[in-house]
């Protein structure tokens, strides 16, 4: 019975993604496109500058956005987030889907909201780690960049990339 309960709770967690956020596109290129409908929920950010944490009240996620930037392999990045103490603990690597909620598709340079001072800034042009393995090769992991417009790809777990941690907003 206990196993069943754990199993079902895990299945809930797997699918607990919630509603879709707006892409950010507002330009209408053709009638009926994304800019015309602007479907999804509006992202709503607030920044705590003292600790360098940005909260998205729509996704209820908090993002590490302090001035220190870290560059490391994937397994180190997981440990780094687990041990991170900025305004408390509870940090982890974001999933690919969580990183994608940050993308502002109306911007081609720094495709992310200006509430973020550091993620995707000009000095951090590289890709960021996600926790999501590439389904066709589990030695690779999904990675996302914001600087020269949004882009995603996959990298070997042994590469060194930027890391930013996320946690649920419990406030």
């Amino acid at each position: 019975m206990l196993k069943l309960m754990i199993f079902s709770l895990l299945s809930l967690l797997l699918y607990a993604d919630g509603p879709v956020v707006k892409s950010g596109q507002t330009t209408i290129y053709i009638s009926g496109d994304d800019g015309a409908y602007r479907a999804g929920i509006q992202r709503s950010y607030s920044r705590d500058n003292a600790v360098g944490v940005v909260t998205d009240h729509s996704t209820k996620l908090q993002w590490q956005d302090d001035a220190t930037h870290r560059f490391m392999a994937w397994s180190e990045a997981q440990t780094y987030c687990a041990q991170l103490n900025i305004d408390g603990m509870g940090w982890r690597l974001p999933t690919k889907r969580e990183l994608e909620t940050l993308v502002d598709y109306s911007r081609s340079n720094r495709a992310i909201d200006p509430a973020f001072f550091n993620i995707g800034a000009s000095t951090y042009k590289e890709y960021y780690w996600s926790s999501t393995a590439y389904i066709r090769d589990n030695t690779q992991v999904a990675v996302v960049t914001f600087h020269d417009g949004y882009s995603q790809g996959r990298r070997s777990k042994t590469d060194s990339l930027y890391v930013r941690c996320v946690r649920a907003n419990n406030q």
């Binding site: 879709v20 707006k22 496109d33 409908y37 999804g40 690919k96 889907r97 999501t132 389904i135």
Partner: peptide
């Protein structure tokens, strides 16, 4: 309507091998 990119990404399942 044609889905926007976030809507399209919402039906991706990263646990399914072969077809996501």
């Amino acid at each position: 309507r044609l889905p926007n990119v976030n809507e399209m990404l919402s039906i991706v399942d990263y646990h399914v091998q072969g077809a996501a």
